[in-house]
Design a protein around this nucleic acid. Structure first.
Length: 813
RNA sequence: GCCUGAGUGGCGGAAUUGGUAUACGCGCACGACUCAAAAUCGUGUAGGUAAUCCCUGUGUGGGUUCGAGUCCCACCUCAGGCACCA
């Protein structure tokens, strides 16, 4: 008997598939396009991570399943090789990123090949390829033309270790997403994308997307829509107003002070009226110097300064109330000013306590007794008090009435801020902009409010990243390119005078925000994507990736797609029709990390057990969308399964005589049903267990050739090599991976008996094989005859009988 | 603090969505094969028990129901996300 030599088989078929272009759909002519996408890896660390393999295998199984169901599946792969991840790796190894990227590329593609995925190898995308980033720059310019790009000086996140600014989305609990250093605020002029213009649409569209719920929730929270009102507080004896945003306008009568953010522009206007401006200025300076870490360390204790000499007027009560500045008010959200309602807001209560400000109750309710001394703010709804005409109303009802009465404006606020896209690093696409001092002097520019700034003419793209020796981040406010004269000295596209090229590069997430548009069009030299092909293949039918990109890549891609759609460059506004987040793979109960030394190298396992076994084990160990624990011992179960399948195949090949068996036939139909449904819903672990159950059955009495082939097809998406080998051993023509997926006959699933469960008082007593469809009376008769049942009944007549057809009977005494 | 999930054998995990808890796999025990071991095959494997009897059992406490791993209330623990967003 031929032995199962996985090393040989896997190599052989990987080569054969590539040669036959089995996984290359006809991009222009395909009849049933299905775009099966997985998040491309960044080739930074020491080769492909088993976590990548976990994700890719899960995605590949789905793609193979669709292919066997008659779709022209397009499953591309590429490398997200630009950006800080890869650059840091290059810094670590001391190899120039240009060189390192080529080394990593070779290594990754070799590893990826060994996994046996149905990749369309001819359409690869590498974000650092000038043929690709040319179009990243081109997209930047389209956004610029549309007015969706601007440059502004404002406090931004600065990572002292990565020596660059970061987008809000890249700051996790005040730490850098990459290196976990504490992030500082720094006042810098940077490039932004107007993602906030799309906040409402990004939120609204979520409702109709077939995405993992947890990702939708994460995006929803990140966008953070709040409904509230803007209310004007006049300033006594001064023709200016303080505009505040609140979601609780019903508490307006309880506003006993107003607070401005330290960065609020109004402070400049008020300067001359503020008697203690020196003190105020000192506070502002101290705040800007304080790092977020220091703020966090101080336990968020409230600080602030009262503005002496100015008084605000509560528009509802008419009371004069003090004005403060405090860093508990954020400048980037709402109007940068809030009304302080100590009785009904925790934070305001804290502040009032510290500064001994009056607490005025305007809502009574719940069990909380609002009597002095106050212990805490009452934040729930209730009945209005101390609010003149509104007294006695329900606070929910008074909400908009109060806004109306003082001429406030109903408003939406979003938590999300504009996307900061510039970086002071080397290894990414240079931002394709030029600044001309002369035009700036004349007040001329391509966009309003941005004199002197011009996009690089499209014919001059790409702006190539120069090969410079010193690619290390400088740590100042500029990228290493700022010291490369040959790079930044250029001519103004408008007046032709000497001008300076932008030296910042773009955020890696811009590179990856559109790669799925490029995959089907990699052969296009003159356009970013071919219109006809794009129409055929996009939006992506199925996208599988990590949930960690919920508010990064997945949000940016949606935004960019929406913007490109508005510009008229594509005809859809959501990039991914269906998205599923896979779970996290851990090892022996702990997160994999280099420091713990428990990182799994897939190569090693492929070598020892074969790609098929590793693939299948990864999918078997836990539900794919949940993630789970990788244990070395577990893989043996799969190895045995594959060996036994192999042996069974050899028996079939040797033309062993087998009788037709209705039970086996039914078992097979059941398995087809279960596996089909489970793959569709990504429940691979239970699909595999169903395959095991069937194998256990089939081994006992043998299996017909036809039945075995059906069984093989069901395994094919999970273990593509061994199934292909057995398929060809059985002298089938063509690949099993384009064979028709088996269907099941619902008629054949029906058995003529079932196991009747018998309960007495809800307690299980006996199990009886009974004919399907028996009546309650019949069931009662046979059940009562059972010894255990009779014993439990103890001769008593049941008061009640619950009968569930073809399932159980329950006697209630 | 808030928002998500999730707590089931020695372990990874199943459970037709209110109807036989522990499928499938790992591990373990015993047996067969072998001079022996590995591999393979067979049998068993929630706990209490000698037991095919019985009792208990899905994080904890209560509830609804003929019947709860599944629904409701309260609590505990773990993982992930957000965090002074007014």
């Amino acid at each position: 008997m031929k032995k199962y030599d996985f090393t040989k088989i896997e190599k052989k078929w990987q080569a054969a598939w590539q040669k036959k272009k089995l996984y290359e759909p006809k991009l222009k002519a395909a009849q049933n396009p299905f775009y099966n996408l997985m998040m491309f890896p960044y080739p930074s660390a020491e080769g492909l991570h088993v976590g990548n393999m976990y994700a890719f295998t899960g995605a590949d199984i789905y793609g193979r399943f669709k292919r066997m169901n008659g779709y022209d599946v397009f499953e591309p792969i590429g490398l997200d090789g630009f950006g800080i991840h890869s650059e840091n790796y290059a810094l670590k190894t001391g190899t120039h990123p240009l060189k390192q990227s080529k080394i990593s590329e070779k290594r990754f593609y070799k590893q990826l090949e060994a996994l046996g995925n149905g990749f369309a190898w001819n359409e690869r995308v590498e974000t650092y390829d000038p043929e690709y980033y040319k179009w990243t720059q081109w997209i930047f310019i389209q956004m610029w033309k549309r007015g969706l790009v601007y440059r502004k000086k404002q406090p931004v996140n600065w990572c002292p270790s990565c020596k660059t600014v970061l987008a809000d989305e890249q700051v996790i609990s005040e730490k850098c997403e990459r290196c976990s250093s504490v992030v500082f605020k720094k006042d810098l002029e940077q490039w932004f994308f107007r993602i906030t213009d799309y906040a409402d649409r990004l939120l609204h569209n979520l409702e109709h997307l077939d995405w993992s719920e947890r990702v939708k929730i994460a995006q929803k929270n990140w966008i953070g829509k709040s409904e509230g009102a803007e209310i004007n507080f006049a300033i006594s004896d001064f023709p200016h107003i303080i505009k505040v945003f609140t979601t609780r306008p019903e508490t307006l009568y309880g506003a006993t002070y107003v607070v401005l953010a330290p960065e609020n522009e109004l402070l400049k206007t008020l300067k001359s009226k503020i008697l203690n401006f020196g003190e105020v200025k000192k506070y502002i300076e101290s705040v800007s110097e304080r790092s977020d870490e220091e703020r966090a360390m101080s336990g968020r204790e409230k600080t602030g300064v009262k503005l002496e000499g100015v008084v605000a007027i509560n528009p509802a009560s008419g009371d004069g109330i003090p004005i403060f500045i405090s860093d508990y008010v954020l400048s980037g959200y709402g109007t940068g000013a809030v009304m302080g309602v100590p009785a009904h807001d925790d934070r305001d209560f804290e502040f009032a306590k510290k500064f001994k400000l009056p607490v005025k109750i305007v809502i009574q309710g719940g069990d909380v007794k609002l009597e002095e001394p106050f212990r805490e703010a009452y934040e729930a709804h209730g009945t209005m008090v101390n609010s003149e005409n509104f007294d006695g109303m329900k606070s929910e009802d008074a909400k908009w009435e109060i806004v109306k009465s003082i001429g406030g404006e109903r408003k939406m606020q979003f938590r999300i801020r504009d996307w900061l896209v510039s970086r002071q690093r080397y290894w990414s696409a240079p931002i394709p902009m030029i600044f001309c001092e002369s035009c700036a002097f004349d007040g001329v520019g391509e966009q309003k409010d941005m004199p002197g700034w011009f996009a690089v003419p499209e014919k001059d793209l790409p702006v190539k990243l120069p090969n410079v020796k010193e690619f290390r981040p400088l740590g100042g406010e500029e990228s290493p390119l700022a010291s490369v004269k040959s790079f930044y000295v250029t001519k103004c596209p408008r007046c032709g005078k000497k001008a300076r090229r932008e030296t910042d590069v773009s955020d890696t997430f811009l590179d990856s925000a559109w790669y799925f548009l490029r995959y089907p069009s990699t052969k296009e030299k003159k356009v970013a994507w071919n219109e006809e092909i794009t129409k055929k293949w996009l939006p992506v039918n199925m996208y599988i990736g990590g949930a960690e990109h919920s508010v990064l890549h997945l949000l940016y891609s949606r935004f960019l797609t929406m913007a490109l759609s508005d510009i008229g460059l594509i005809s859809f506004e959501e990039p991914f029709t269906k998205f599923r987040a896979h779970g996290l793979l851990i090892k022996d109960g702990a997160k994999m990390s280099k420091s713990k030394g428990n990182v799994i190298n897939p190569d090693e396992y492929v070598k020892r057990f074969g790609a098929d076994a590793l693939r299948m084990y990864l999918m078997f160990l836990a539900p794919f969308e949940q993630g789970g624990d990788f244990r070395d011992a577990g893989i043996l179960g799969i190895t045995r399964f594959l060996e036994r399948t192999w042996k069974l195949g050899m028996r079939v090949g040797a033309k062993e005589k087998v009788k037709r068996d209705e039970n086996r036939e039914r078992a097979l139909h059941k398995t087809v049903k279960k596996v089909t449904e489970d793959i569709e819903s990504l429940q691979y672990n239970t699909a595999i267990s169903a395959l095991m159950v069937f194998l256990n059955e089939a081994e006992k009495n043998g299996i017909s050739r036809k039945e075995f082939e059906t069984f093989l097809k069901l395994i094919a998406p999970f273990a593509p090599h061994i199934t292909e080998e057995l398929w060809s051993e059985l002298k089938n023509k063509g690949s099993i991976h384009v064979a028709k997926w088996p269907s099941f006959d619902p008629e054949k699933l029906i058995e003529d008996t079932f196991e009747l469960a018998v309960q007495v008082n809800g307690k299980f007593r006996a199990r009886i094989t009974a004919p399907l469809g028996i009546s309650e009376a019949e069931a009662k008769t046979i059940a009562m005859q059972e010894k255990a049942v009779a014993g439990a009944l103890a001769g008593k007549e049941p008061q009640k009988v619950i009968f569930v057809e073809d399932r159980l009977i329950n006697f209630v005494l």
